[in-house]
């Protein structure tokens, strides 16, 4: 089996089908992360997964081979989620007052999705990465461009909301 580094190297040399292997390798992982971040909204999770792989391809030249690809991809995915949520919020503010006509169906562990529902997009990222994927605060800070102290304080605020 080819390593992620080899596949990336070959993709950069013009072999796009090698990137297809990488997509298949991490499709479930990214989709799972997106499902958790979107609170079980399958359509939204698929959309964010797709955007994440597109963005990962776009910035593949900037990928440092010393780094773990999965780790790098996680950073891209959470930032994609944040960007998409920000765009959605912009449209929601335009649509203020209008009645919602569509409620997405939740797939998976509904207890968890209901638990994180009151959290903001950023808080969801913090809780999901810290408690489900066991990331260190420093890594989470690097993904989101936050200082360690900020990560800690925001996490504790999110936990207060949950408990």
């Amino acid at each position: 089996m080819q390593s992620d580094g080899e596949l990336i190297e070959r993709t950069l040399k013009g072999g796009d089908h090698y990137y297809g292997i990488l997509i298949q390798r991490y499709a479930d992982y990214v989709f799972g992360l997106c499902m958790r971040l979107t609170g079980g909204n399958r359509a939204s999770a698929e959309d964010i997964s797709q955007q994440s792989f597109l963005k990962s391809y776009k910035y593949l030249k900037a990928y440092d081979s010393k780094q773990d690809y999965k780790h790098w991809l996680t950073g891209i995915t959470v930032n994609c989620f944040k960007d998409i949520r920000r765009q959605e919020n912009r449209y929601e503010s335009l649509d203020e007052g209008a009645e919602a006509t569509f409620y997405p169906e939740l797939h998976g562990n509904k207890d968890f999705f209901l638990l994180i529902k009151p959290l903001s997009a950023e808080e969801k990222i913090l809780v999901v990465l810290k408690y489900l994927y066991d990331y260190q605060n420093a890594d989470i800070g690097a993904f989101l461009g936050m200082k360690l102290g900020t990560v800690k304080s925001k996490l504790s605020r999110a936990l207060d909301k949950l408990r």
Binding site: D16, Y19, G20, Q24, A27, F31, L54, N109, F112, L132
Partner: peptide, 28 residues
């Protein structure tokens, strides 16, 4: 308990072949 239960859940992309094909098409 909720976190422990969620950790055990495995999510799968519906059709990985189709998904990767679609992403590669968008790239090209």
């Amino acid at each position: 308990d909720i976190i422990a239960a969620e950790k055990g859940v495995v999510y799968q992309q519906a059709n990985k072949d189709l998904f990767s094909f679609y992403v590669l098409t968008l790239i090209s």
